[in-house]
């Protein structure tokens, strides 16, 4: 199933998992089809708390679908996904409760354009967590401070640059105090100048100990921040390992081909 994993890669995985006992995300033999199209094939992976996992692969390889399955924006059809001890299945009642533990950042930001940056951030906490208005606002301001744009608090998303929008989106996800953050190509829709400001925020987040699952084409980011890199192709995890292993000693010919084309 996990093809091309060397002994060294195995030890690298163990290395990162060592400090924590229970994995926070467990995927076992996950399969998914869009109609007849087999998007995910027997994907099995475990993510430990505070681990940063970067998912890379060619477009159409199923990497986005995979992380969207983890907060059930997509439903998997076979296998098991267990997030923070709760299994995602058809009979799941409080999917909203699980989603509150998982922050997500989208490629297209998906800010709510009818709300200001601040309102984008306070909306969910004040509704779901019943946080008082003043408190929600204070936390939101702290988050905006953390992502570096407190001065944009009262602007609408239409008035913000792409990079600023994405940072507000990150702050919005963090406002729910999630245990896991999913990033679905967060920098793909950005100008090169703005990519850096978003990546800086993500790096800071990784350093603070957040569990992160990041789909990205930013190899620099993967190399610098990732604890582990997963390489997807045709809905399978073709190869995985530490960044050092992945970028220098990848074994599988598909991985080598991919890396040779992008590096």
């Amino acid at each position: 199933m996990l093809e091309g994993i060397s002994a060294k890669a195995d030890s690298a995985v163990e290395d990162t998992l060592r400090e924590d006992t229970e994995p926070i995300i467990i995927c076992r033999e996950v399969n998914k089809w869009f109609g007849d199209f087999h998007v995910l094939r027997d994907v099995s992976v475990e993510v430990a708390p505070r681990e940063v996992v970067v998912v890379i692969g060619p477009s159409g390889s199923g990497k986005s679908t995979f992380i969207r399955c983890i907060n059930r924006l997509e439903e998997h059809q076979e296998g098991q996904i267990i997030v923070d001890g709760m299994e995602l299945g058809h009979d799941i009642r409080n999917i909203s409760a699980i989603r509150q533990e998982i922050g997500m950042v989208f490629q297209q930001f998906n800010l709510f354009p009818h709300l200001t940056a601040l309102q984008n951030i306070t909306l969910a906490p004040s509704i779901v967590r019943h946080r008082p208005r003043a408190e929600a606002k204070e936390i939101a301001m702290q988050l905006l401070e953390r992502v570096g744009i407190p001065e944009q608090a009262n602007k609408y998303s239409g008035q913000l640059s792409g990079g600023q929008q994405q940072r507000v989106a990150i702050a919005r996800a963090l406002a729910m105090e999630p245990k896991i953050m999913l990033f679905d190509e967060p920098t793909s829709a950005l100008d090169p100048e703005m990519i850096k400001e978003v990546l800086d925020v993500m790096k800071e987040l990784a350093r603070s100990g957040m569990t992160m699952l990041v789909v990205t084409h930013e190899m620099g980011f993967a190399r610098e921040v990732a604890d582990r890199v997963l390489f997807f192709d045709h809905g399978r995890i073709v190869e995985q390992g530490t960044p050092e292993y992945f970028f220098e000693q990848a074994q599988h010919p598909r991985t080598k081909l991919f890396l040779s084309q992008i590096l």
């Binding site: 907060n71 909203s96 709510f112 909306l123 779901v128 996800a173 729910m176």
Partner: peptide, 15 residues
């Protein structure tokens, strides 16, 4: 509306 709006709402855990 772009579908992303609803997804973003789901993702922050709103019913």
């Amino acid at each position: 509306l772009p579908p992303g709006q609803e997804e973003a709402g789901k993702a922050v855990g709103l019913p």
